[in-house]
Design a binder for these strands. Structure first.
Lengths: 221, 221
DNA sequence: TTGTGTGAAAGCTTTCACAGCA
DNA sequence: TGCTGTGAAAGCTTTCACACAA
């Protein structure tokens, strides 16, 4: 009984959602989670069930938010020291992360920034140190950084990703529009706007197609 | 025979990939696409097959990139006039899109930006007009904008999304960390960094779990 | 009565294996 | 010999329906 990938991704998001709640003690039902997320309540129950956590997670009035999110983090292996991140490329997009407050309270810590432009590294301010790009090789292993947020210009994306993999990065959030190929063992999460828009448009096209199809089936009868 | 959602999303991405190619005439094989994307070649063949496009799409040496991407766009309904987009919220992140060149050559056009801070709207420069937020109601229908890129501060996200839906937006790319609930008929694509990192960490946890499980099974024998 | 937990069924998607074509 | 195309099988995930607990 392994945990299915879609289940794990839903749970990861659910944990975040639970931690945003105002009252971490007030029970939350699967129906309420359905309302907040759009996922059907039975899917949520099944997901939680797949965790294999004990009965202290839930009562007859719903789940205990804090215990549930802890159970999720523990089963998915979200421990703070494993989740140091860095931003690579400090242009408009990359530097936007320097002032992003969402990391507080999350299991991820942003602890370094890199840019090939030494000037930019010196001018920008952040709560963590910024380095010139050639120091990646030294800093990434030293700080135990495992995840990278890639915001370099498109023409440098492939090369930079390969170097990151070499230095021990295990996951890359790719904000460039370039499709990356990396060594096995490194995971990529693609977040280009064009992909996101493409996914929306594709979903919408299916809707319209299916609606049209259903309408024509109905009219045939 | 509808097109499965995962298939549609892969095809949307494939079309983009094909359009980035240097030579739009040189045939591309499913094996080459496998190398570029990581998707197995038989999945790609099945996906293309699901399009139901004619035999002019492929030869015995592979697919014709240009014709294939056109077939994808036509079946998925990617026509230029349907895909006007706007950026909502012009802070660091939102304003990064103003200088983003990736939209050229894509089926999407960025044609407006909105921010509640009138000052910011006047100071920032872009190739398309920027408006104060209260004009959304007027401008979105007038320009036929269907997709919105949401970059407002977290505490305004929910409210803004609902207004966008009201004004006729059918798809929102949500860059805020807030989970949105919108009326049916509006699609959301969530791209918060925390979600992306969470997905990476979740996938990695499964890998490690499964590897450990396999190792222990092996050692039991 | 209102909620979770969970085998079993249904529904999708991917994978396979091989036919067919240039 | 290289490739695509595609029914059929296998493998996952979601949905259902109902048992069970407070």
């Amino acid at each position: 009984m392994g945990i299915p990938k879609p289940t794990a991704e839903r749970l990861a998001r659910l944990a975040q959602l639970l931690e945003q709640r105002s009252d971490p003690e007030a029970p939350v039902s699967s129906a309420e989670i359905e309302y907040l997320t759009g996922w059907p309540s039975h899917t949520i129950r099944k997901d939680v069930s797949a965790l294999g956590a004990g009965p202290e997670i839930s009562t007859s009035t719903g789940y205990h938010p804090q215990r549930l999110s802890q159970a999720i983090r523990s089963v998915l292996g979200f421990t703070v020291e494993d989740h140091n991140c860095c931003v690579v490329g400090l242009g408009r997009l990359g530097s936007a992360f320097l002032e992003y407050t969402g990391f507080n309270g999350s299991p991820f810590t942003l602890c370094a920034g890199f840019d090939s432009n030494v000037n930019r590294v010196e001018i920008l301010k952040a709560d963590f140190p910024l380095y010139p790009a050639f120091k990646m090789k030294e800093i990434i292993p030293r700080l135990g950084i495992r995840y990278a947020i890639l915001c370099v210009p498109p023409d440098q994306a492939r090369q930079t990703a390969l170097r990151l993999a070499e230095f021990g990065i295990v996951g890359i959030v790719n904000f460039t529009p370039v499709m990356l190929s990396v060594p096995p063992g490194v995971e990529i999460e693609q977040v280009s706007i064009l992909d996101a828009l493409g996914a929306l448009a594709a979903r919408r096209a299916i809707h319209e197609r299916n609606d049209a199809r259903e309408a024509s089936i109905r009219s045939e009868k």
